[in-house]
């Protein structure tokens, strides 16, 4: 199981990578592994807004549905439409090709309560 050090993590198993004011969001390796083969993704429209801790989309395997919770608030500047056609990318490369949305972050303070890689790893071990 992979936990890149340069990312921040949520309890709902999303990751965030901050680059200036733009945050890239996806789901973690652990999330894709527990979901199984992803067959469907629903993402928001470009130009829409997302709110911290509110659902912004859905991922589905054959027998499970998971909401995607936004780790931050802001406006969606880019959406990774490629994964809508190839949802298997989420299983294959959750931290790379299968990023989901890029968000122009409204308030950087919102990242403060997210977990570091070590904290997240510990969190999921406890959750098991």
């Amino acid at each position: 199981m992979d936990f890149p050090k340069d990312l921040k993590y949520t309890k709902e198993h999303e990751w965030v990578k901050l680059d200036g004011n733009v945050a890239t969001v996806g789901i973690t390796d652990y999330a894709q592994d527990s979901l199984g083969d992803v067959v469907y993704v629903e993402l928001p429209q470009e130009g829409g807004t997302v709110t911290k801790n509110e659902p912004f989309g859905v991922v589905e395997s054959v027998k499970a549905v998971s909401d995607l919770y936004s780790p931050i608030s802001g406006s969606v500047t880019e959406v990774n439409d490629a994964i809508v056609d190839t949802p298997e990318a989420i299983n294959e490369d959750p931290y790379g090709d299968a990023w989901m949305i890029k968000v122009d972050v409204a308030s950087l303070d919102e990242l403060d309560d997210l977990m570091s890689a070590d904290e997240y790893q510990k969190f999921i071990e406890e959750e098991k």
Binding site: Y40, E60, S61, V62, K63, A64, V65
Partner: peptide, 11 residues
């Protein structure tokens, strides 16, 4: 059976 995630036993 497919697209079962629409249905009550999952959603």
């Amino acid at each position: 059976l497919t697209f079962a995630t629409r249905e009550q036993h999952i959603r």
